[in-house]
Simulated assay, not measured.
Amino acid sequence: MSADKVFHSRSEGIPSEGVKDQYADGKAARVWKKYIGDSNQRTQNYKDFLTGLLRKHNCVKVLDVACGTGIDSMMLVDEGFKVVSVDASDKMLKHALKARWEKRKDPRYDEWVIEEASWETLPRDVQSFMPGATFDAVICLGNSFAHLLDEYEDQRTQKMCLENFAKVLKPGGLLFIDHRNYDAMIDSGATPGHSIYYNCKYPVDIKTSVLVVGGKPELVALDYCIGATADGEISERSEFRLCYYPHKLDKFTVMLDEAFGNKAQHSIYADFKPLDQVENPAYYIHVMQKPL
């Protein structure tokens, strides 16, 4: 196969053993932090949607299983929730730990727990640093779950991880999990361009590539290109690639239901609105309520 036909699934510097930590080179983590901004740059729609449902269901203790740099966790801490944040990427967690240190004079941040953990061993990992803990809510947002690729081609790992999310929830607890509109990406070869999570102040271009094997979409690569800024905050064009498993809405819905034994209440939103109100959403957000 010629060099220009090779599909590179990892950014330069990411270790050869896999793509579980696509931020392992450090560069992507730094640029991503700039890209998403801080907790003050989260869109009001997102903040109102998440905190509104958490309060409606009397959720206090929240596990952020894809905390990344800690932006969403900080938003929840600021809103008075008790937050435990985990991520598999130590490079991303360094930013979260630094953010907690910078907030050390705020007593709310004394209770913010940040630990490294894997979705594949989540219940055991959580027990290792918080024995007996269960949560009112688990959040896995920002298209994070799609980072987990399907190495066995039967989605067994994804299914196990979703079951692990359910296990750490209290009865009646909520799981918030989302994915991009991969149906649209597969059909059009383009990413719906509007952002629902953050008010990015930098010029951003996203190139979409869909890898099809045997007639089946196996992987979507998004090449993020963030341009230099006039104020010099980003001095040069930054580029990095992140790869995702292209979850289709129908199949992901079934997989989620099965993870909760087909007994959970399942609500689906499009860009934080009722599903029938948005024709071509950027994201689908699933809210699962674990049975009592």
Rank of each mutant, 00 (worst) to 15 (best):
P274L: 07
D4M: 15
V86D: 00
K201R: 15
L292H: 13
K27Q: 12
F165E: 00
M74F: 06
C161G: 03
K56F: 10
W101N: 11
V77W: 00
S118K: 10
D257F: 04
C67R: 00
T229G: 08
S128K: 07
E115F: 07
Q289W: 05
M130N: 04
G173C: 07
D48K: 12
S9M: 11
S11E: 15
I114A: 05
L50D: 00
W101Q: 13
T121C: 02
D106T: 07
S128P: 05
S9D: 12
Q22C: 06
A190K: 15
A88H: 05
C67V: 06
R124V: 07
K34P: 01
E279D: 13
L162E: 01
D90T: 10
E115R: 15
E239S: 12
K20V: 09
S235I: 11
Y182K: 05
S11H: 11
I226R: 02
F129T: 09
K94W: 04
G214S: 09
K105N: 13
D183N: 14
T157K: 14
Q41M: 12
L50S: 01
V213N: 11
L256R: 01
L63N: 01
T208L: 08
S9F: 09
K20Y: 11
S39Q: 14
M255F: 09
A3G: 11
K94C: 04
K170V: 12
Q155F: 10
S144C: 10
M255K: 11
A146M: 07
W112Q: 02
K91C: 02
S9I: 09
D223S: 13
P281D: 06
G80C: 08
Y46T: 05
Y284W: 15
G70K: 01
K159G: 05
E12L: 13
C200F: 05
T51A: 05
Y197V: 05
E12F: 10
V60Q: 15
H95S: 07
I285K: 02
T229A: 10
V212Q: 07
G189A: 09
D150P: 03
G37S: 08
D25L: 04
A190E: 14
S118L: 14
P274E: 06
S209I: 05
Q41T: 15
H194F: 11
H179Q: 10
V19R: 11
N58A: 14
K103V: 01
L148N: 06
K216G: 04
A117M: 04
A29K: 02
F49V: 04
T121A: 03
L275Q: 06
L50K: 03
V287W: 02
K248C: 10
N262F: 12
Q41L: 12
H266M: 09
G189C: 11
I114S: 04
M1P: 11
S235L: 13
G80D: 07
K167M: 12
H247E: 08
C243F: 03
S11Q: 15
L211I: 11
D187K: 15
P274I: 07
Y244V: 03
V83L: 05
H194W: 10
I114H: 05
S188M: 09
Y245Q: 04
K82C: 08
S73W: 00
K27N: 12
